[in-house]
Each structure stands twice: as structure tokens, then as C-alpha cells.
Nucleic acid binder design. Sequence first.
DNA 1: ATCAGAAGTTACAACGTTGTAGAAGCGAAA
DNA 2: TTTCGCTTCTACAACGTTGTAACTTCTGAT
Lengths: 358, 358
Amino acid sequence: METAAEDGTKARSGDSRVVTMREVAKKAGVSIKTVSNVVNDYEYVSDATREKVTKAIDELGYIVNVSARNLRRGQTGVIALIIPDLQLPYFAQLSSLVITEAKKLGLQVIVEPTLYSRDGEIAALHDGRHAMLDGAIFSPLELGQEDVAQLEVDYPLVLIGERIFTDKVDHIATENVEGAKRATGYLVQTGCRRVAVLGVHPGEKVGSAGLRFQGYKEALEENGIDFDERLVVPAGMWHRSDGVSAMNELLDSGVKPDGVVALNDMLASGAMHAIQMHGLSVPEDISVIGFDNSDDSQYLSPALTTIAPGLEAVARLSVKVLKNRIDGVAPFDSTDPVFRKVSSTLIVRDSTRRVIGR
Amino acid sequence: METAAEDGTKARSGDSRVVTMREVAKKAGVSIKTVSNVVNDYEYVSDATREKVTKAIDELGYIVNVSARNLRRGQTGVIALIIPDLQLPYFAQLSSLVITEAKKLGLQVIVEPTLYSRDGEIAALHDGRHAMLDGAIFSPLELGQEDVAQLEVDYPLVLIGERIFTDKVDHIATENVEGAKRATGYLVQTGCRRVAVLGVHPGEKVGSAGLRFQGYKEALEENGIDFDERLVVPAGMWHRSDGVSAMNELLDSGVKPDGVVALNDMLASGAMHAIQMHGLSVPEDISVIGFDNSDDSQYLSPALTTIAPGLEAVARLSVKVLKNRIDGVAPFDSTDPVFRKVSSTLIVRDSTRRVIGR
DNA sequence: ATCAGAAGTTACAACGTTGTAGAAGCGAAA
DNA sequence: TTTCGCTTCTACAACGTTGTAACTTCTGAT
């Protein structure tokens, strides 16, 4: 079954030796370089020659040796996506989209989960493995504003998210403030006057929790609604069970909210559960709105109204900018680092009441 | 800012040229091959030389050029993981584990989602991109028993899951039958006598749904409980909302189950919701048990009792077997294709009652 | 002192591709 | 006819590494 080759190189198991350009060239009766030219769609190849070569390629089942090409070109066509955890729906979705976008541009993706470790993030950025990567997209979770220096690496890097802000690295951000503002504003439009917020991280400024909370406050202010400290419920983690406890805490405390802005969909899911367990109904008694438009938010009962942060655009833009950098092209006609904020969308489903007067 | 190199090769942006073994060798006063030997931990290098070289490497900031190594060795150290969808928690978890295991063995992973397309699966298996991959792990969803031939590829391939069975390819399977049997048996031990099953795919034999349903039936038989067709609820999809509808259907039909085996955790989550919306409680009125031990099953209310299919083991074994094949080593001392079934575990949480008599 | 064998090191030739530079062919302008 | 420019094709030399085989040097047994 195994074919052992004469020299050190191992032949792939199966029937055939590996075909090289040399053999294709011989069969087609042209030079190796001409085969290369055909493979790379070089302009100045006559139709006759092109056809001869293509035929030979097909007959021999030739495929380019990517390692050799990489060596010669000094590139690999592979980028890294550095994220905290592939199991978090948000990042699973992001990864999926990045992989799809990268494929369109002929890039492959190696996903590198840092598993919530600061050292993991630093290691991923500086790891020698990058020797074989053309660039990286990085979504920090542990690294913060004080670690800006870590981002100065010697390969193309695109930053996503809102943990760190710097003008030295390309950055694709999402509308955390604006999104939460829109969510809160929407609840107000539907008639809510006592809007609670779940999942706040007290003291945090930069980072999803801080920014989303800020959006909540801005919306209240714009709508002339007084901020009420008692309607603010912190939650360190953003799992479903944290939403359950936070909501229970709120309901048991006696304050009666008529709307809830959950800082992510998991919290919203837990909150809805807690509300229903209290014998109240969503959205009649209390409206609930989430954030992220995670894959299963539409399958909750009731289906969750939420903010879609535009991950597709984040994926598309970050891959595009990275690809430009790799190719030495200036993205968006600017040599400076790019900063782009992707706009969010309100997805209205059944966990909120109708807008008044429509 | 950009440094343009003299010849075609682009230097990485930043201050330094790329360092090669040649330069390290010169600095350390040894041959290139000796540097290579040090880098590759070759046994017969004197301590003095090793130190000289290591020092030079550090000072110059040398890292191996993986493309050159790949070319020379005929390998890339990269494997593909072909799965239906990275956004499904089950596959996100699997991917995460495979990446971790692969890293331990010095392999990198390219995740290739086929997005529920038959052509996607076939393309992923036969794609020319595999030129740069050492092997692949494949979890089929669309391909079935009739497609066995598609698995005959000329690179190392490890199959996981239960859609296809063949003795020509290494295969790591999970205990679908046994797991569902254990789940059902456990409900019986806790006193359930009218155990419903949710998510059945009528007519299916191979595949998770068919196998898990079979386990359910075997458990009933072993426990001397009559099979009741009315307690079987089909569901094509396995989303949370499908669990809600299936459970509603069951409860509204008048049959009164005292236990529910949901064929996955999402269905279980939906089922619990429906039960609670009917004013019944879990587990007092109806026990619910899931399957998969998905990441958030512990965060449901109540926390879900479920079957953990041993994905860590699947990941560990599949990567190990693949690595062995790549290295030309016989896994588990057998040259024949490997077939291993990973054992499942019952995770007892709060959605089921206590075992009687304990 | 001699010699076998192990330990330590090295020169050389690949691995398969592509950039460079230039040759060959050909038609049109001078 | 010569010259020029364009198209088409090719020889050659890298890219940076590692396997092979051979060459030293050293150790210890004879």
C-alpha cells in the first residue's frame, strides 16, 4: 500500500508519483517557465501553447506545489484569526464569515483561540509560527489600552473590536455605543419608560460593556428620561444563567421595569426566562431587546428583537484591508492606518411591543 | 515606511531584513547545516556549538522559513478540518478541541465549513488546495453511505461521526446508540415510565437521529417498558424552536409524558421552555435529558442533564491517528484502517429527578 | 602505537517554483 | 533592406531549507 520513494521525499500514498512542472513541460513540449506562465495566467502566451499545456496538465493531473511557490514568492496565502474562544457564538459567527471572505480573496485562515489568556494573546501575536503567515486579524479580549505597544508587529495586522484604540494599526470597529443607543431608543418608542439594563461592568469605559452602557445612557438622555441607578444591573459574565440571576435580582428588588436592554443575546435569553418564570409575559409586561443577533436569537420564545452589529461587514472589511496590506496596496486610497466603524442594524422580532402610533 | 527590496522578494515592513540560516551560520562560525541541526534538535551537536548557535539565533532574531522547510520536507504541518458549519455549537466545540490537540502535536488547522452543501463537501475533499495540506479530518453531514467512494483520496483522511461507515478509512465514531440508551435508561431509573423522545427522523438508520432513536428503543426494551408510538415526536431540524413546537405538540395531544429524551441539547432547551410555559415544572412534573453537553447546557434553567459524547476524545484520537498517518506510523499498532468508538458520559444536572432508592 | 567505531561537523545537491533578462520570431515603419 | 517594437518563449538563477554521504576528531580497547 505504501510506496517508498528512492530519496528522502515521501510520495503520497496511492498510485501516482507527484507530478511537477518539469513533467508537464516535457509532455507539452515547452519550457518549464511556459507552464508556469500558463498556470499563472500570464498574458503573453499564445492560444495554441496555452491549450497544449492545459491539456498536459489535465492528463497528468498536475497541481502546483504550494510550498515551492510560497518559498519563491515569499508568501503563503494564509492568515491567522486570533480570537478569545471559538465556542462563543459571536466568535464562531465571526470566524465563519472571515473564512468565507478570505476564501473569496484566495486566502486561507488559521483560527487561533487564545482561551481568555493574556499570555495567549501576546503569544499569538508574537509567535514564531507567524513565519508562515501573511498577516493576522486580531480581536483582543484580555489586552487593553495599556498594551498598545504589543500591536507593533512586523507583519500586517488588522485589529477588530473596541478593547484597544490606536492610530498605528488598521482597525475595524463595531457600533457599540450607537447600537445600544438605538436599542434603548427603540424601547422608548414602543412606550417603555422604565428601561432596565443588564450586564453592566461598573467602571469600564472601553470594551463592549462600557460602550454599550454608554449608548443606553445617551438614549435615555436624548429622550428626556431620567437615569435610574436601580434599573442598572451588573453582570460580570454574559452567559444565559447570568441573565437569569440578574433579572431575578431586578424583579425581586421591587423596581418594576417595563423594558430591558440586555447587553448581549445570552443575557436577554436568560432575562426572558426569568420574566416568564415570574408569571409575567414578554413583551406584554416587559419588552426585552438583545445585542449581537446571535444565530439562535431567532429561535428563542418569543423570537428576540436585537441589534445586529454587522459582523459580515467587519469580516469583509478586515479581510479586504489585510489583503491590501499584504499586496502592498493602500486600502481606501490612504497610506495611513484605516479606521472604520461598521454600522449596526435593528432586527425587530417578537420580544418587543409595537412602536406607538404606527 | 515601506522598504522595497532589490529583487522580487518583498521584505517585511519594519526595520529588519529577513534573517536566514546562512547569516546565523556566519555569525556563529559554523556551517549552515550545523545551524539546521541545532534548530532541529539533532542529537550529535556539542554543547559548545549548540550554545554558540543558539546565541547567534537570539541575537539576530532568526526564525526558520517554514515555506523552505515545507518544500524540502514535502510537508506543511497544516491539516484541514472539514465540517458542516462552524456556527453550530457542536462543531464550534469540536473545532476548538481539534485546534488545541493539533497544536500539541505541532500541527495547524484550517477549518473548512461546507455550509450544508453536498457539493461543498465533495469539493472540500477533492479541492486542489489540499496540495498544501498534510491531511484532513472530515465530519460528513450531506454525504451518506452511498458516497463511500468519495472518501478514497490520495492524502491521509480521518472520518468522524456516523453518517458513513467503511473499513477503508480511519474512523472515530461516537456512542450515539449507547448514549441515548444510557439517557433513556437513566430516566427510567429515576422513576419515569412514560418517556417521550423528541427530534426523531422517521426512516433514518445511519446518522445521529436514527442511531439515537435506536438507543432509546433499546433502553425501553431492556427495561421492559412498552414502546408507545404516541411518545415519539419527529423534528427535522434540531433548533431550540423545533424543541418548543415538538413539546407543545406532545403536551397538547393529551399524552402525558413524565420524562423526555431530547435528541440534542437545543431541542431539550426548547422542550423545557414549552413545559414551563404550560405551567408544569422541570423536573418535578417532567424530567428532561439532552444530548451533546453543549457549552451552554449548564446555563439553562434548570441546568440540563445530558449526555457528553466525549468530543475531547474524538478530537484527540482523530488528530493523533491523522498525525500517525502523516508520519507513516501505524496507529494503534495496526496497519489497517482504525475504527474507534469514543465512550459517552452521563452528566447529571437539575433537569432530572433523583435515582430511586439512593 | 594502532585501529574501530562513535561523536561532531560539513559540502553539496536537491525540493519545485518564479523573476529576470534576453533570445527568437514577425510585421510594420523607415 | 534595415530597424524598431511587440509578442512569445526560454535559460538560468535564485528562494532557504534539509538529507546524504563523507570527512574529521576523539575515545577507548587491543
